[in-house]
Amino acid sequence: MTTIEPRPPAVEWGEPRSRTITWHDPMIVAAMARTMSGLDFFLAMRDGTVPHPPIAMHFDFEIDTVAEGDVLFHCTPDESAYNPLGMVHGGLVCTLLDTVTGCSVHTSLPAGLGCASIEIKVNYLRPIHVVDGRPSRLTAHGWVVRPGRRVVFAEGDVRDADGRTVATASSSCLVFPLEDMPPSS
């Protein structure tokens, strides 16, 4: 077995960077979701009366518009989301698409029901380049294409600041009673 000895950072790497992420108790947010329709829940989140979940805080996802079966989010990824080639990692784009497709489904549900992704297919159409040391602001749109009692189908896309589509997704979400979820502690 080969052991690789850690090397001290090279001077040309520059100073290490860090990022602090702050969020509220996700189980309290989940308890709030049980009492509201999906549309009311996401409108309250957009308006700041319900806190954003930790994943949204991690990637700085912001809600722009919310309607039944339709949501629009945005984010401007910082360099902590870059891949080794200095572009935004596809995993962030997939997470953004999973978020808007799932949220679009949730906005179509009455109080007491929730949803979870059971499948997502992402098509990456172009890389998200860093320009002048900053990536492009990304806008993600998710919408329901076929409602259902147990499974709902949604689609989404992500566009860069110039309006070019960088990725698309199709998703299916399982609908279930939120009473089946464990209670908050």
Results as ranks from 00 to 15, higher is better:
C103A: 15
A116R: 12
I120C: 04
L174D: 02
R134K: 15
A167S: 10
D40C: 00
V152N: 00
M1W: 05
L178W: 02
W143G: 01
T20S: 10
T22F: 09
T3L: 13
D98P: 03
P183N: 09
I28E: 15
S37A: 01
E79C: 13
F42V: 11
H129G: 08
T3E: 15
V145S: 04
H129K: 12
R19V: 14
D47L: 05
L92A: 06
M57R: 14
V158D: 07
E15Y: 06
S18M: 10
L113E: 11
T2P: 15
A140T: 04
W13T: 13
A10F: 02
P183R: 14
E179G: 11
A154F: 00
E155N: 00
D132Y: 10
R7P: 04
A33F: 10
T101V: 02
L97V: 02
G102E: 02
L125I: 07
M45V: 07
R146A: 08
L138D: 08
L109S: 07
A140Q: 00
L85K: 07
T95P: 02
F59C: 08
I55K: 08
G69C: 01
I55M: 10
H58A: 13
N123P: 04
G69W: 04
P26A: 02
D180I: 14
I128N: 11
S37P: 01
A154E: 00
T76L: 09
P51F: 12
P8I: 11
H106Y: 07
T95N: 06
F176R: 05
G48I: 05
L178P: 01
R149P: 14
A44C: 05
V93C: 03
V131F: 13
G86R: 01
V122W: 03
S172H: 06
R34H: 11
I21D: 05
D98K: 05
L92I: 09
S108N: 08
P110V: 07
L109P: 10
S170T: 12
G102R: 00
M32K: 14
G14L: 03
V131D: 13
F59M: 11
H58N: 14
D47R: 06
R137C: 03
A169K: 00
C103K: 05
